[in-house]
Design a protein around this nucleic acid. Structure first.
Length: 686
DNA sequence: TATAGCCGATTTTTT
DNA sequence: ATCGGCTATA
């Protein structure tokens, strides 16, 4: 295990806070930033300078002479954490780079590597991603013969959902089934059985899923006093961002971390809670003063992001919400351009409109990285992506399928996992199944053999397989497993794994040349890590998104526009925002329609999307009645505007309607007949 | 008994 | 593109 040595940091004590520090904050922000000791709840509306306030708070605390490491800043993504640290450094000095921070999960990972032994985990445990969990569940389901009993037995993904929600909502399996999918209530005993087997197998194999990271951290804090005391002494101030998206387990973790001093500041906006499907509970905000009765509450209501007409619409949308902390955003920013609303005949026309508009904006001198297109589900942008490519407009897409979820990356990672932790049955299954003549049965036989002898390689008797074609491969694989992990750099291990994988890789995928680029990226990423364990943890906790992969591949950082799911757009802002597929059934998603709470969450989702825009906001509603989704779900029309904008005629009152006129000549020529790009214009004819 | 291969159905959001 | 189920084959 890597040893960390405390280095005396060279701190420039000459540089003190700018006398102007805090002058540009409004009174509420100032109250939060200069707050003394004790619990503090900051209710921060969209665009109200939430990040700015947190960053100033960090700088203020560090400048008070506090050891930066003793400040723990828990954020929703690692990106957010890095961004805040960077801004704090700008504001004060390099001391801020030592602030402790990360996501709840990455923090749990660090603590559990060190203290996990106390609750029976090896320090080389492997973090399972969602796919790994499903694979293990599927394996158990097959072993128990549950797959065959009845066609209607839930699929692995559904079971994973049920188990995960039960944990994250601190509820029972039975209640979760009743709430989520009552049609499977008959199988509650079987699902409980799977749950037990799943928990046992994970422990045997040294695996933790995302939920285990939180649950086990909480267990340490709750039941291991020495750990709790250590952490309480170490972390003097706890700051939590996006508190509305924490679940009950996380709230308890915060409670224990705060300790007796209760120096804990949480920041959140109940109107932006969009992760309840993951067990997040925005009532955590309401309950904060119950957990910390001494809590001070500060509300930030002034919006610095959006022009007034945009804000008028967003306020109106969230006004329809059933439950919320009452707050009303206002801005001093002028602006007379109303959000623009466009109806198109289908998604193809929607894409054409966007391409055209973006070319206009570029003409005007607007840079592409100030433009974003937002949507409910990753696949909603499929058509747009094709058209952007053919129009030669560069973009990056956030959300949807991730790099590490691709089959070929999972293959390579499986090699690495079994090298780090030979007890990992899932990794073995995946690797052994690559071989001709090996299916699930043979793979698990081989795995059993290895497991029994893994402490003494010389006892391993492989004679059984001597006649098989895969025998030499098996020999080579075992040699790979027992290489010295602590001495080899991750990149070396990846390269060794790739030598073993290559023949199967080229056999398995027709388009292996295209996939090769991903493999190269994996090598590049591995170079950042000093050991295999941290590399694999990072892949599970902060999977690289397409941007990082692209920037590895391309040296030039060309300007690109952003396509993003609304979830992934959280916390960001753009000059111009297009919200596409504002169709009832798309947003809200038809999957959410059965449940009032879920529909309310969809409303908040739209609210988050709308509040990303600073100056220009486009809302586009294609008619999707004749598209694929509609024959899959016969009851749905997919032709009406989203209910959240339809109610009380919000569209009529708060937006300007653009009329698209089909130019008869050839299919669609946009180049002629376009009026001067002018967002105040009444009509948009093409 | 185990595997390979084919076909058809399905696609919310994410640490 | 991927998953799960079915069938032919060794």
């Amino acid at each position: 295990m890597q040893k960390y040595v405390l280095k005396k940091s060279v701190v420039n004590h000459n540089k003190t806070l700018d006398p102007e520090f805090g002058k540009d904050l409004n009174p509420s922000q100032r109250e939060a930033v200069f707050f003394g000791k004790g619990p503090l709840l900051v209710i921060a509306g969209a665009g109200s300078g939430k990040t700015k306030t947190l960053v100033h708070r960090v700088a203020y605390l560090v400048n008070q002479g506090l050891d930066p490491k003793s400040i723990l800043l828990l954020t929703f993504t690692r990106k957010a954490s890095a961004e805040m640290t960077r801004r704090a450094i700008d504001l004060l000095d390099a001391r801020c780079s030592n602030v402790s921070g990360g996501t709840f999960h990455s923090f749990a990972n660090i603590i559990l590597r060190r203290y996990g032994k106390l609750i029976g985990y090896p320090d080389n445990f492997i973090i399972m991603d969602r796919g790994d969990s499903e694979d293990l569940i599927s394996m158990i389901r097959k072993e128990k013969g549950l797959a065959k009993t009845d066609k209607r037995f839930p699929k692995k993904g559904t079971i994973a959902d049920i188990l995960g929600k039960a944990v994250n909502r601190s509820s029972t399996i039975e209640n979760t089934i009743i709430k989520e999918c009552p049609q499977f209530l008959d199988y509650k005993d079987e699902i409980c059985e799977i749950q037990k087997a799943y928990a046992n197998r994970k422990k045997e194999m040294g695996l933790m899923d995302y939920d285990d990271l939180l649950v086990n951290l909480l267990e340490l804090l709750k039941n291991k006093e020495e750990v709790r005391n250590k952490l309480n002494n170490y972390y003097q101030y706890i700051l939590v961002d996006e508190y509305q998206d924490t679940n009950m387990i996380q709230a308890e973790i915060v409670k224990f971390l705060a300790g007796k001093d209760e120096n804990v500041m949480v920041v959140g906006d109940d109107s932006q809670s969009i992760y309840s499907f993951r067990g997040a509970n925005f009532k955590n905000i309401v309950d904060f003063p119950k957990i910390f009765p001494k809590a001070t509450i500060v509300t930030l209501e002034e919006n610095y992001r959006s022009a007034q007409p945009i804000l008028d619409l967003t306020n109106a949308v969230i006004d329809g919400a059933r439950e919320k902390y009452s707050k009303n955003l206002f801005t001093k920013r002028s602006g007379n351009i109303k959000p623009l609303y466009v109806e198109t005949k289908d998604d193809n026309e929607q894409s054409q409109f966007i391409c055209q508009k973006i070319l206009d904006l570029r003409e005007e001198g607007q840079t592409l990285n100030k433009i974003a297109v937002l949507f409910r589900s990753a696949w909603h942008s499929n058509d747009l992506e094709i058209q952007l490519k053919s129009a030669d407009i560069p973009f990056v897409k956030y959300g949807g399928i991730k790099f590490v979820e691709a089959a070929h990356i999972k293959d390579v990672v499986a090699y690495l996992k079994i090298a780090l932790n030979p007890a990992d049955a899932l990794g073995w299954q995946r690797v052994l199944n690559l071989w001709e003549g090996v299916g699930p049965k043979t793979a698990s036989d081989i795995f059993e053999l290895i497991l029994q002898n893994r402490n003494n390689l010389t006892l391993l008797n492989l004679d059984k397989y001597k006649s098989k074609a895969f025998y030499p491969a098996l020999k080579k694989l075992l040699a790979f497993i027992f290489i010295n992990k602590s001495q080899s750099k991750p990149t070396k291990i990846v390269e060794t794994a790739l030598r073993l994988y290559k023949p199967y890789f080229e056999e398995k995928y027709d388009n292996f040349n295209k996939r090769k680029a991903d493999i190269d990226s994996l090598i590049t990423i591995s170079e950042r890590f000093k050991d295999l364990e941290s590399f694999l943890s990072e892949l599970a906790l902060e999977p690289p998104d397409t941007t990082q992969i692209d920037s590895v591949a391309e040296t030039e950082d060309e300007e690109k526009m952003t396509l993003s799911t609304i979830h992934s757009a959280k916390g960001l802002e753009w000059h111009t925002v297009f919200i596409i597929s504002a169709v009832d059934g798309f947003l809200p998603s038809f999957q959410s329609l059965g449940d009032m709470e879920q529909i309310e969450e969809e409303r908040r989702l739209l609210y988050v999307a709308l509040t990303r825009a600073k100056e220009n906001l486009f809302i586009i509603k294609p008619n999707m009645a004749n598209k694929k989704a509609s024959y899959m779900y016969p009851g749905m029309q997919f032709s009406k505007l989203t209910r959240f904008l339809d109610e009380k005629s919000l569209i009529d009152n708060y937006t300007e309607k653009l009329i698209l006129v089909n130019d008869e000549e050839d299919e669609f020529s946009f180049d002629n007949a376009l009026p001067e790009p002018n967002f105040g214009g009444r009509k948009y004819v093409f």
